[in-house]
Design a protein around this nucleic acid. Structure first.
Length: 480
RNA sequence: CGGGGCGUAGCGCAGUUUGGUAGCGCGUUUGGUUCGGGACCAAAAGGUCGCAGGUUCAAAUCCUGUCGCCCCGACCA
């Protein structure tokens, strides 16, 4: 303990300082000091990258299960290629970074650093697809993209980010629509069953949809402050890109037809979502399925005879059982380690000391509830696996409950304004751009997505704001 | 692009009003006592005070310029 009160307060303050930085320090560092003009560059530290790798693995597995294959396309896109889809260009032009110089050679045509790859992949698809026999084409690419945003935000909006972008081509609109919805479903499954984040799925308004798309579908999560985060999107591009890039096939009937294409993407922004949905005052709280370490063994009194040997033995057994393990044999006090691993979000802590060894037991402490249990060393791997599943479910339910408490279905604009102060409002809406803009100007809330099963004819609702006939049941909220 | 704030040791900061030996906490290193919730004692290492110019016997401190970062707006698949 510190000598006097003043020193003690200072001591605590410096700890709190550490702790306020946990989110950047542990996972991502945005540090622009050496990049004078590149705002919002991101450095992902090894621990954060390990999280991303686990996300990649589990998403990729789902992509493969739905018949997709991975490929890679160029980083640089010639300006003329980018410009072929008018609406797309209009949407992305303000945030594209350009290469104008290659070595000592000044380029005759600028090259865009990809903000997304529809244009270049579309160009390739046009060459690859000849016949109905070539369809569908189902590909995915893991890569980085760059968008020169005016303002950036750690995790949520960085200039450069890692993502996956799926691009598919189909013979008919219906097949493209089916694919769009299938991948939206894959994303929802991933968010809920891997990240333990409940998401709303639905369709974007015309204003919020992807530039050049026929329709954009999205999954939206609620953060702890009640704000919305778009976690992934799936677009039915109709034949818009096929028309601009000449993606055509010869049908069974011998006619040249345009393809129908889709694209869908999720990014490192999801790491930000995990942090903001699950984190608490002690730091990160990682859902077990993406935790680089699912359990950490903290030996108690490691200098005592046999403790380290037993801890090492346990570590090997649990690791062999398929649990991602860490044995903390560093020269720190137990209490320090407890706090350190809680800050890093490890779901389960295993304490093993002389007293436990006598009783053939270990102490398990879960990160989410801090609940402590004494369990037998026999069958410990199974006990921990069950506990990890339980932690996942309980984290999901906590987030779901939070969202439920901050979402209100409203029919009155006063209630609407109240609702979007702390969360989502679900309200009938006319679907018109001017109305959407005015709602944003007045309340700060934007349209997030609308439900797919709402029938305004049956319900006879009027728009929450302008009073015209409602077309959609829309979720509104303030967004990141 | 507009408004505000900040650049001093690895990290977080005080010191600038009123110019006069470069400070504090954490971290690091060494030795010792400890060890079931962020230990204690003792010693040590570590900074051309963002950069450039000016004023002065003397500048972290005053003046001018410049670069960078953060926050709030505006903007934003």
């Amino acid at each position: 303990m510190a000598k006097n009160k003043e020193e003690f307060v200072q001591h605590i303050a410096s700890r709190t300082e550490d702790f306020a930085k946990w989110y950047t320090d542990v996972v991502i560092k945005t540090d622009m000091a050496d990049y004078s003009d590149v705002r919002g560059c991101m450095v992902i530290k090894p621990y954060g990258y390990a999280i991303w790798e686990l996300m990649q693995q589990q998403m990729d597995q789902r992509f493969k299960e739905t018949g997709h294959v991975n490929a890679y396309f160029p980083l640089l896109i010639p300006e003329s290629m980018l410009m072929r889809e008018a609406e797309h260009v209009e949407g992305f032009a303000p945030e594209v970074a350009w290469v104008t110089q290659g070595g000592t050679e000044t380029l005759t045509e600028r090259l865009a650093i990809r903000p997304t790859s529809e244009t270049i992949i579309g160009t390739m698809y046009a060459k690859w697809i000849q016949s109905y026999r070539d369809l569908p084409v189902l590909m995915n690419q893991w890569c980085n993209v760059m968008r020169w945003e005016k303002s950036t935000r750690p995790f949520l909006r960085t200039a450069e980010f890692l993502w996956q972008e799926g691009h598919t081509a189909h013979a008919t609109f219906e097949e493209a629509q089916e694919e769009t919805m299938r991948m939206l479903g894959v994303y929802k499954d991933f968010a809920e069953n891997v990240l333990a984040i409940p998401v709303l799925t639905g369709r974007k308004s015309e204003k919020e949809k992807f530039a050049g798309a026929y329709a954009t579908y999205t999954m939206e999560a609620m953060m702890q402050d009640g704000k919305a985060l778009q976690m992934g999107t799936s677009h039915n591009l109709g034949n818009n890109f096929a028309r601009s890039y000449d993606i055509m096939y010869l049908s069974k009937e011998g006619k040249q037809e345009y393809c129908y294409t889709t694209s869908w993407g999720t990014s490192t922004r999801m790491i930000g979502g995990v942090i903001m949905v699950h984190g608490d005052d002690r730091g990160l709280m990682l859902p077990p399925r993406i935790a680089p370490y699912q359990a950490v063994i903290v030996p108690i009194a490691p200098h005592k005879e046999g403790v380290m040997d037993k801890a090492e033995e346990l570590f090997q057994i649990l690791k062999a059982a398929g649990i991602r393990m860490k044995l903390d044999d560093s020269e720190q006090r137990a209490g320090w380690k407890f706090n350190q691993w809680e800050m890093k979000g490890v779901p389960v802590r295993i304490e093993l000391g002389p007293k436990d060894m006598e009783k053939n037991q270990a102490v398990l402490v879960r990160r989410d509830t801090h609940e402590k249990q004494f369990v037998s060393l026999d069958g410990l791997a199974d006990t921990i696996k069950a506990l990890l599943d339980d932690i996942h479910t309980s984290m999901y339910n906590r987030a779901l409950n939070h969202r439920a408490q901050h979402t209100r279905e409203v029919r009155d604009f006063g209630d609407f304004m109240d609702a979007v102060k702390t969360g989502f409002a679900k309200a009938p809406w006319c679907g018109e751009r001017e109305c959407e803009d005015e709602i944003k100007a007045i309340t700060g809330a934007t349209t997030r997505c609308y439900t797919l099963d709402y029938d305004p004819e049956l319900r006879g609702d009027t728009c929450i704001f302008c009073g015209k006939k409602a077309k959609h049941l829309m979720y509104f909220g303030k967004a990141y």
